[in-house]
């Protein structure tokens, strides 16, 4: 049996989809093309109960492809105005994979500012829904660029989403809904499964070493004795991904759309 050729983007989509495998009937939100295609792949394979939206305010029966839809109008199955998104997320029935600018060893993330909050070196979006998301429903993360600029030493510049940081717990207790799941990057899959929720490497993308991941991370990672290789997409998954992304938006995420197996490069 030959292993099909696949891109890094496709490897990431397959790894991201795993985030929603055991979630049952919840709202799946993937911010950015690859997490979004991850929700689509999860929904069309192992978790058809997931609810996904058109990116505006409707739930659709089938995942909506990133980019232009041509004449194909998706079938609408429900309504999700922002008010309901808040109600849903406060109720916990959602799992989001978001793409922060910075993350630290506690899993705290930042999308607000680089530098001082009062007079930032770089003003970005603002905290958006990150604070509320982080303490009400499961959250996962995607980083297209796994570097020490993103995986920062110390704490992120402005903590927008809560992490496993006892120094910030109110009354000594972690926020009730805090549930950080996986981090998918261009190099590896990580999670919070080590003692005290420390971040560990779950799998390395083909051709990537632990040292390479550690060198691009601004804090120590937990290294399990055995680290598997991130599973390659199957031929069936590749075929599905191509159908879920007919515009090929996935090819634009990483520069030059590199192969998923670095050894093949």
């Amino acid at each position: 049996m030959t292993t099909p050729n696949y891109s890094l983007a496709e490897l990431v989509i397959v790894a991201a989809a795993e985030a929603w495998r055991h979630d049952g009937e919840v709202m799946a939100t993937g911010i950015g093309p690859l997490p979004r295609l991850g929700t689509a792949l999860a929904k069309t394979t192992f978790n058809p109960a997931l609810q996904t939206t058109d990116g505006e305010c409707f739930y659709t029966s089938e995942p909506v492809p990133p980019g232009p839809r041509g004449d194909r109008e998706p079938e609408i199955e429900g309504w999700s105005p922002y008010d309901r998104v808040f109600s849903t997320l406060w109720g916990g029935k959602r799992h989001a994979m978001v793409a922060p600018v910075q993350i630290d060893r506690f899993g705290q993330t930042n999308i607000s500012v680089i530098g001082d909050h009062a007079k930032p070196k770089s003003a970005m979006l603002g905290a958006r829904g990150f604070p509320g998301n982080s303490v009400h429903h499961p959250n996962s993360f995607f980083f297209a660029s796994h570097t020490t600029r993103a995986f920062v030493p110390g704490e992120v510049d402005f903590v927008c989403s809560a992490g496993y940081n006892p120094a910030r717990y109110l009354n000594g207790k972690p926020p009730a809904g805090l549930d950080l799941r996986i981090i998918v990057t261009e190099l590896a899959v990580l999670d919070f499964g080590a003692p005290d929720h420390a971040i560990r490497v779950v799998s390395l993308h083909p051709g990537v070493t632990f040292e390479q991941v550690q060198d691009n991370t601004g804090f120590p990672l937990v290294r399990p004795d055995h680290i598997p290789t991130t599973p390659a997409p199957t031929a069936e998954q590749l075929d599905l991904i191509a159908r879920l992304d007919p515009n090929g938006v996935r090819k634009t995420v990483f520069k030059d759309n590199p192969p998923g197996d670095r050894r093949a490069a």
Binding site: Q108, H117, A127, F130, P131, G132, S134, V135, H136, F158, V159, C160, S161, A162, G163, N165, R168, Y169, L170, N171, P174, P175, A176, G177, L178
Partner: peptide, 20 residues
């Protein structure tokens, strides 16, 4: 009252208080 903001820098802005 809400849990939103717990564990973040949002609630370190002077406008915020907590309540038991």
């Amino acid at each position: 009252p809400t849990r939103i903001g717990a564990g973040t820098d949002i609630i370190r802005q002077p406008a915020f208080r907590t309540v038991r």
